[in-house]
Design a protein around this nucleic acid. Structure first.
Lengths: 101, 101
DNA sequence: TTGCATCATAACGACGACGTGATACTAGAG
DNA sequence: CTCTAGTATCACGTCGTCGTTATGATGCAA
């Protein structure tokens, strides 16, 4: 249960999520992720390291570049599910509000 | 994207996850959750409030008791999916290790 | 070898979340 | 009305994580 919470924590950070999204369409090297997200290089490196340790992303050096790739694209399904639940939660809250007014 | 991260954050805490699990089989009042989880009353109250604000759980007072209920049981699907991905990530890491040794 | 990218790490300060203990609030029993 | 069980909230200390700046390490080209 603690491990599961830690896994969720991987996705609980906006910038980390942005880094993950940058990798949705395929492998990118660090600089490419930096340009695509607008985050600082040090920060991108940190998040990529976390994602690697979490087993979400795979690190592969190629010459002087280092490419990162999402291992199991099922993570995007997880993200999509969360988005859906988030929308439903919003609707429910509006409904609850409407029931009062 | 920030909101999505916040939503993930809801599930990124072991005790909060435990509170949620306690509600898997149906509505419970606060004391029941306290007994089922072993957490302090104040802490359970806090987590339930968070879950309510997040729209995951519904608060319904009944007499002097207050019952909480999971609104959309799809959240358990989300949790299950995360568990699956977590397991796969573990396997992948072992495979990566085996590829080196 | 020297220089220039690319990437990783260290040290630091700031901010937020967690858990606890104490206290307020509420509804119903007596 | 009073007392009690159930629930919510407050104040506080603690700890983790985030982002930045600066620096270290690596590979390739000239």
């Amino acid at each position: 249960m603690e491990h599961l919470a830690e896994y969720f924590k991987v996705f609980s950070e906006p910038n980390r999520l942005a880094v993950l999204e940058a990798l949705r369409q395929g492998p990118l090297n660090v600089t490419a992720v930096v340009e695509k997200t607008g985050l600082s290089q040090a920060l991108v490196s940190k998040h990529l390291k976390l994602l690697t340790i979490a087993g979400v992303v795979k690190r592969q050096p190629e010459g002087s570049l280092v490419f990162y790739e999402v291992i199991d694209k099922g993570v995007f399904k997880l993200v999509g599910q969360a988005e859906k639940l988030l929308l439903d939660a919003r609707r429910q809250q509006l409904d609850a509000l409407a029931a009062i007014l």
